[in-house]
């Protein structure tokens, strides 16, 4: 299998706080990897390091074999290949749904307005938001916003999508529509890294589940193994805590 992202001995400090303490992880093309773990374990930080929203302190990240930390590597290029979907949606407030999906294509990929609009429209329809192309973000519900955000990321034709808790900010009745969208993308074979607290979703959709604890990957395996036969004590404890909550 072709290696898409290789993370090697990644460390990240925030001042004196050592947050990532040597993470090693490889994502292959077409793979869906979910990252689980307790709050503060460094999941978001890891994800944000992958597209350089945070700069790693040491270690290396390769994207399709090239180190993204080298000075020659174009960050702007990297980011067009890596889509990111945020917990808080972060739709551009001054733009409607369609424009949200168009702006990056025109500005960064230099596509024509017309072409960009067509691609944007296709993606909005794909996530079931075609009817809302002219709606501004504040006219949309949380679930609708998140679907537009996914369409925005898709419009850049990324090789890989990064999701940071895409459903955590949603009212329970809207979680389903967003997860359904992500499932459909997984079925299409899009490479995805998803940080989530939705264990059922992680079990269904992922090829591999990564359990993070205190800045390192504590366990990494297929969903069946992780959820049914966890090897590590801290994985067991985490899963037990999660199950008790629900």
């Amino acid at each position: 299998m072709e290696k898409m992202i290789e993370i090697k001995d990644l460390h990240k400090d925030f001042g004196k706080n050592h947050i990532l303490k040597g993470v090693n992880l490889t994502i292959h093309r077409g793979e869906v990897v979910t990252i689980i773990g307790s709050s503060g374990s460094g999941k978001s930080t890891l994800l944000r390091c992958i597209n350089m929203l945070e700069e790693p302190t040491s270690g290396d990240i390769l994207f399709k074999g090239d180190s993204i930390l080298s000075d020659e590597y174009s960050l702007s290029q990297l980011r067009t290949h890596l889509g990111m979907v945020f917990q808080q949606f972060n739709l551009f407030e001054n733009k409607n749904a369609l424009q949200n999906c168009v702006i990056g294509q025109v500005q960064v990929l230099k596509r024509s307005q017309k072409e960009a609009e067509k691609i944007a429209m296709d993606n909005l329809c794909k996530v079931g938001m075609g009817e809302f192309q002219n709606a501004s973000p504040k006219q949309l519900s949380g679930g609708q916003k998140q679907r537009v955000a996914i369409a925005r990321a898709l419009s850049m034709n990324p090789d890989c999508l990064l999701f940071d808790e895409p459903t955590s900010a949603l009212d329970p009745e809207m979680v389903g529509e967003v997860l359904k969208t992500i499932r459909e993308l997984a079925a299409e074979g899009l490479t995805m890294v998803v940080v989530t607290h939705e264990m059922g979703f992680a079990k269904d959709v992922s090829d591999r589940v990564v359990f993070m604890d205190q800045g390192v990957i504590a366990e990494e395996n297929t969903p069946e193994e992780i959820f049914n036969h966890p090897k590590e004590l801290r994985t067991k404890e985490f899963l037990k805590r999660i199950l008790e909550q629900h």
Binding site: L53, S76, Q77, R79, L82, G83, F86, I103, G104, M156
Partner: peptide, 12 residues
């Protein structure tokens, strides 16, 4: 988040 979202799609 507006800055980050823009950054994340490669905008300068």
């Amino acid at each position: 988040g507006q800055f980050e979202a823009a950054q994340a799609i490669g905008m300068t």
